[in-house]
Simulated scan of single mutants.
Amino acid sequence: MTSFELTKDIVKVLDNKKAEDIQVIKVNDLTIIADYFVIASTTSSTHVKALVDEVEFQLKEKGVEPRKLEGYQYANWIIMDYGDVIVHVFHEETRKFYTLERLWSDGETIDMKELLD
């Protein structure tokens, strides 16, 4: 599975579980840590965990497991490391505070229509 295909799968799961303001930034020209950042948020820590649980479950069904998962205990910002794709699921207020989109604004924002076809 390519990093773009993995990104599409992740975005579809997040969209189906009602994640808010899903954004994908292509960062492979800016850093060696990943090809894509997937960023999503919601208004409750319970929903943050539910989103992460569903992404993990759906990808595990396809034989893909995260290398690392951080922040689950607090559920304000959970990071899922899938190697070439890093997933950031935020509580809405935490996302506003850290503004990852601004920090990685030199990356290419991917059109959601391209990911949800």
Rank of each mutant, 00 (worst) to 15 (best):
Met1Arg: 06
Thr2Ala: 01
Phe4Trp: 03
Phe4Ile: 01
Glu5Pro: 00
Thr7Asn: 04
Lys8His: 07
Lys8Pro: 01
Asp9Gly: 05
Val13Pro: 00
Val13Leu: 08
Leu14Asn: 04
Asp15Pro: 00
Lys17Glu: 08
Lys18Arg: 03
Lys26Leu: 06
Lys26His: 08
Val27Trp: 13
Asn28Pro: 00
Asp29Arg: 13
Leu30Asn: 11
Leu30His: 06
Leu30Gly: 03
Thr31Ile: 15
Thr31Ala: 04
Thr31Glu: 01
Ala34Leu: 02
Tyr36Ile: 12
Val38His: 09
Ile39Val: 11
Thr42Phe: 10
Thr43Glu: 12
Val48Cys: 06
Leu51Phe: 01
Leu51Lys: 10
Leu51Cys: 06
Asp53His: 12
Val55Ala: 07
Glu61Trp: 00
Gly63His: 08
Pro66Met: 05
Pro66Cys: 10
Leu69Gly: 12
Leu69Arg: 15
Glu70Phe: 07
Glu70Leu: 07
Gly71Trp: 12
Tyr72Gly: 01
Tyr72Gln: 07
Ala75Arg: 11
Ala75Leu: 11
Asn76Leu: 11
Asn76Lys: 15
Trp77Lys: 15
Ile78Tyr: 09
Ile79Val: 15
Asp81Trp: 09
Asp81Met: 10
Asp84Cys: 03
His88Phe: 03
Phe90Pro: 00
Glu93Ile: 06
Lys96Asn: 12
Glu101Lys: 09
Glu101Asp: 13
Arg102Lys: 15
Leu103Asp: 11
Asp106Leu: 06
Gly107Trp: 15
Glu108Ile: 09
Ile110Leu: 13
Asp111Thr: 03
Met112Lys: 14
Lys113Leu: 09
Asp117Gly: 05
Asp117Lys: 07
